[in-house]
Amino acid sequence: MSTLILSTATRYLMPLLLLLSVHLLLRGHNEPGGGFVGGLVASAAFALYTIAHGVDQAKRMLRVDSKTLIGMGLFLALASGTFSLFAGDPFMTGLWMKEKLPTIGKVGTPVLFDAGVYCVVVGVTLTILFALAED
């Protein structure tokens, strides 16, 4: 299925899509976007890459194992909820930094949670995709 046009196009599309996905993730709290959408866009980027270059290439591109990504994401989401416990609030109370960081914007535990969601979504879709494509 790999054609020259597709493989060349994905080579340039890939970084753009990944950048877009991170952008969607970070702006999600204030504008349409968020961890689910961001993760799906990133997964779509890898899916395109898989079709163009094959599973092995795509896996190398991802660097980490997709299943590890699921675990990391779940851990991140869970951990983001526990910060509030140290502050004496109930589990998963959102905590925010007072100052804005450059480019990322305001940082708080919900952003961390959303990043966890992002990782899980990428991990899940790619685990499924790779398993089906290799089969």
Binding site: H29, G94, G108, P110, V121
Partner: peptide, 24 residues
């Protein structure tokens, strides 16, 4: 309460965060 402007996302990651945790 949640310092966000996108209500849908705020529901997902803050108000109903535990549900989302279950969903992922």
């Amino acid at each position: 309460l949640a310092q966000g402007r996108n209500v849908v996302n705020v529901i997902l990651v803050d108000f109903r965060g535990v549900d989302t945790l279950g969903e992922i």
